[in-house]
Each structure stands twice: as C-alpha cells, then as structure tokens.
Write a protein that binds this DNA or RNA. Structure first.
Lengths: 345, 345
DNA sequence: GTGAAAGCGCTAACAA
DNA sequence: TTGTTAGCGCTTTCAC
C-alpha cells in the first residue's frame, strides 16, 4: 500500500531553498518567522501534498496527544452516551481517543491496559469490568505519572480521579420511594459486588429498609450478571415466591424492563401488584408500559467531565488535589412505581 | 509528567552486552534468535520496565496499525453495536481503533477525516453524516492507497468497499407486509435523501405501493431529521389528516416508537387504527407496547465485516476486487402491524 | 529571523 | 545466530 512516497519538511525546505527548521516553525505558526516566509511555506506545503507526521513528532516530543479509554462494553446506551461526551471534549482540546473494550473480563482488561500503555496514551479513562479483582494493571500508568481517570465503575486508587454519582444516596432514594408507595417486601437485583456501583446501591437499599424498620432478607436479594437472561430468571423466581414481593429495585433499566415485561406476561400487574424502579434513565424507560421510575444518570456529562479532568491534569502537568467528582443524579418518578394515586402531588 | 525516563532496547542491550538488533528481534519473537537469548532478553526487559515505543516503530515501519473510524454519532444503539463488532475484529488482529464523530455535520466530517489522515491511520471506516454532499474529503486517502470502507450510510466511490444491507428490498418487504395487513394509506417517514439508506428505503416503499396499485402521494411522505422531536411533530400531523392514514413505515425504530407512543396518547389504536413498522430492531422494539414490527439489521456483524474487509485489504496489500458486501436483513413481524388475526399463521 | 545539527527509539538490510 | 549501521521525519538548542 501507500505507493506514493511522503512529502517531508525537507522536501519543502529544498523546494524553497530554506532550512527544515524554518519550515517546521512556520508550519506550527511559530512567532519568530516572517509572515511572508510563513505564507510561502504553507502554500507550497499544500501544493506538494505535505502532511504532518505524527509519529516523528510524537517520538520527538515524547507524547501522543491521545487518550486511551477502556470500557466494559460499547453496546450499551449508557456507555455510548459517555463516549459521546468524551469524544466531544477530547476533540475540542486536540486529543484523539483510542478505545478498547474489556468485554466484562478482567483478563481482557489487563490486555487493554497494556496495549494502551504501549501506544503511549497521555492519559487513561476507565470503567472497570465486572470481575476485576485488583488494579495492579494500572500501576504501570501511575508509576509513569500517566493520569488515570475512572468513571462509573471506579477503583479505589489514591492517585486516580474518580467521576461518579452518589450511588448510595440514589439507591436510598429509590428504595425509600418504593417504601413510601407502600412496598414492604422489596426485591433488589444487583451486579457483582466487587464494583462500587452495585455494592453502594445495595448499601443504600439496605439503609432505606433499616430506616423504615423493614428487615433485610437475603431471599429478596439477587446478585446477577445483569443480563437479560438473568432478569428473566429472576422474574420467574419472583413469580414463584410466597408471599410475593410487592416491589423491585433493579440496578439498571434493562433489567427492570425485562422484569416488567415478564411480570405482565404472567398476569401480575405493575405497579398494582409489584412496583418496579430501575436505574440509568435509558430511553427504554420512557417506552415500556408502564413508564419506568428510574434514577437519571448524567452519562454524557460524565464523559465530558472525565475528559475535561484528564486534560486539565495533562495541561497543568502538576499533581492536582482533585480526587472524586460526584455528579448529580435524580429520581424520576413514573408510573411503574406509583401505587397510591395523589400521594405526592 | 512522565518524570521517569524510558528504558530503550539500547539499555537492555547494554545490560546484557548484546546488540540492540538482537534485542529488537527477541522482543518480537523473531525465529532466528536462540531460545536462551530470547528468554534472557524478555526477562530483563520486564525487570527494567521496558515498554515498546510505537512511535519509533511506526515511524520506522511507516504504518500505524491503527484504523480510523468516522461515524455520525456514537450514542445510538445501532452504532454502538457496530462498534462492538469493529473493536472485536480489530483487536483480534492487532489493530487499534481511533474514533471520531461527525455529529451529523458535513463540515465536522471533513475535519474528522483530515485529523485521522494526519494521524496516519492504515485504513478508514466511515458511516456518512446526514448532510454530506460530496466525498472529496476522502480523496486524500484514496490517492495514497489507504483503503476506505463505508458501512450503512455509504458513498458512491469506485475505490471503496461498502458494507450494507438491501435497504430497497427491506423497505419493499416492510411496506408489502403493511399492505398485506390491509393498509392502503401508508405514511413513510425517512431521512435525508442524500443518504442511500433513506433514498433506497423510499424507493422500496414506492415500489411496493406500485406493485399493489396504490398511488404514491407526497402528502404521506415525511422527510425529517429522524429526531424524536420530528417524530412527535409528524405524529401530530398524522392525527390531523383526513382521511387518516392506516399505516406507518418509519426508517428507524426510535421514530416508529415515538409515533406509537404519540398515537396511543391520542387514543388512536395501534395496530387497529394505524399499523406501524420500524427499522433496525433496536431493543426498544421489543419493549414498546404493542411490540414493534421491524427490520432486523445485523449491526454487530456489520462492524465485524467492515473491520475484517479492511484488514484483509491491509494484509494482502493488493487491490481487491471486492466492492460491495450485502448482509442479510429480515422482517420481524410483531404486534404493531398485525391487523388480521390468523392471517399468516 | 533563520540555519546546523543532534537525536527521539526502533527496524532491517547487509555483513559477519 | 548475532552485530553494524543507516535512516524513518520531526523538533529544538545553540549559533549566527
């Protein structure tokens, strides 16, 4: 491939009978170059089909102007929204994005990290895989002072920045809302407890129960992979329980929606028999009937903030005292959880 | 940042009293190196904290092992699925992915292309923005024999590969299905006719009408931005039409779903009064009530095929006679379009 | 305001 | 099987 040979600044220099350094300076708008010279150089560069060689430039400058991103998966609305925010801020600041997905596997996540390390990203943005048990694979970055920013599923790491929402409080609010609607036997469906998002939501759930003198029982707790298959299974178990639960708080919307669909298939009314609350505010939550009560998660903003904090760190090139940024969530009450008409409005 | 200085193959060479080239060879598992030497080199490389420098390597080899991707947006289920396929195949083959989004703007798309060109991607994968009017910004790639693969929203370009589905046929089938259900006044909602996906769907729609002796009328055609806002507007217009349409074929699922939601809000029954068919088979289509009849679009496979064709081209380093790859779609009939019980089963 | 020259770290042709 | 050596194309210090 690439049959045509590349034009370099040397070629331009030769063509204009000046030195390569002058060409280099002109091309990056260095102030010491005469306007006329600059104009000429830029013109001939265009004519000759010159393109800047990032490899050489990066090699020389020892930086890549690139940010690496590791996420658990790409095909979720939440992650796609985060990405959209990341890309926006990164490109506005002249940074490229290299992405890789761990496919929810610790092993693959280690691989991703190492690949990005070798491609010399200037910084790293990560949301952890489901089963990641330690964070040693990020030490190579930290040792080299390459900043690492976690979002959503974050690591407990002293040198890193974390962008999160208050999962504990959000879960507390969601659960309290169910209790206010009269629910007493509330099922919680969560994911791997290694991940802050799931463990904190469980804590918030428990706290809300405790505050309302409802005993927490393990029978009503389901730890799953948060897949559609799991949701359908859990729905089956719920249907077979006696006494039957009267509320469900699921850690994401896709799970909550699957539960609603399965319950209604079985003739159980939502919210009449069982009220349901999800998490994330995916578009799907506004489509399912009844519309899903859920926690609004500022995904795109999270991406923007993650990229902005990382770039801030890179530009200031100094240790920042920033540690954790908490974005605002809020409970969106829709019909899937409203048992008592005119309860709160 | 990066306070620690980097270990190079020279450092390893010095430490072991051998030559840099031997180190280089050992590190890439060159067959001519003695096993014992290789072992030692890899061991000390690890100890010394060596990492491969892609910049130098790329500069030397004049290739980046990187594929550039330009998409119209990232926050759609369809694109996210494509990405998941792209990333899978790319990483399996040792390629990195640099992504950028045109945000549906021709201007931004030109920028994206040029940025990726300068970062010397080995190949380019593109789905066009809504309003892109010419494809000149891809000529820089073609001139340098850098392969360009389009997917979904493709360009009419002789040197490029296109990965598509048969949009014409899919639309024909969708429309024919509506007609078979008894619809006669069918609305079509499409996007910018500059894009193959929308123009071909319109053609298929018209053809199906013609084959059934139904006259096409402009009153029943809506060309929109395919946004939620547009969908709600169109729904309003449909409600005010007399005689009222009895079917809707929308060019994507989000639009179809918005239409359903709006119609039902207004007390119009779907499919009873108006049957609705969408396009894409987003998860949302299985959640909306009634479940949405739609065209299954093999998004992840499309990503995989796009990456695989591009990489095939790169590896063989020769002009391939490949031009267009058509993936299989299929009509998924669900309740939103079934007017006549026991019609087809 | 411009030029000379060294070197970023790696690879590969050629030599041994 | 291993070593020597000459760049890849750019930036930047120092000199003028």
């Amino acid at each position: 491939m690439k049959s045509t040979s590349e034009v370099t600044i040397y070629d331009i220099a030769k063509a204009l009978n000046i030195s390569p350094s002058t060409v280099s300076r002109a091309l990056k708008n260095h102030p010491h170059i005469k306007k006329e010279t600059k104009r000429k150089i830029i013109a001939t560069a265009g004519e000759m089909g010159y393109r800047h060689n990032n490899f050489a430039s990066n090699l020389r400058q020892r930086r890549s102007n690139t940010i690496g991103v590791v996420v658990h998966r790409l095909d979720s609305y939440f992650i796609a929204s985060v990405f959209s925010g990341l890309e926006k801020v990164a490109s506005e600041n002249g940074y490229g994005l290299i992405i890789s997905q761990s496919q929810e596997s610790w092993r693959k996540e280690i691989l991703c990290a190492s690949t990005l390390f070798n491609s010399r990203v200037d910084g790293l943005i990560v949301s952890l895989a489901f089963d990641t048990k330690n964070f040693e694979h990020f030490n190579i970055f930290i040792k080299k002072d390459i900043p690492v920013v976690f979002f959503d599923r974050v690591a407990d790491c002293h040198e890193c920045i974390r962008i999160v929402i208050d999962n504990y409080k959000a879960a507390y609010e969601a659960t309290s809302h169910l209790i206010a609607q009269g629910c007493r036997r509330i099922v919680h469906i969560g994911g791997n407890m290694l991940r802050n998002v799931y463990s904190e939501r469980l804590s918030g759930f428990k706290k809300a129960l405790a505050n309302n003198n409802i005993e927490f029982t393990k029978d009503l707790l389901f730890i799953t992979d948060m897949s559609e298959k799991d949701a359908i299974e859990v729905a089956g178990k719920i249907l077979r329980m006696k006494p039957r639960p009267d509320g469900v708080f699921a850690s994401n919307d896709t799970t909550a929606v699957s539960i609603i669909v399965e319950l209604e298939k079985a003739g159980v009314a939502v919210p009449g028999d069982i009220a349901v609350v999800g998490f994330n505010n995916d578009p799907i939550s506004r489509v399912v009937k009844p519309n899903l009560t859920t926690i609004h998660y500022p995904a795109k903003e999270m991406g923007e903030v993650a990229a902005a904090s990382l770039i801030g760190l890179l530009k200031n090139s100094q240790v920042s005292s920033l540690s954790t940024i908490v974005l605002k969530h809020n409970l969106i009450i829709r019909n899937s959880s409203i048992k008592q008409i005119s309860h709160n409005s």
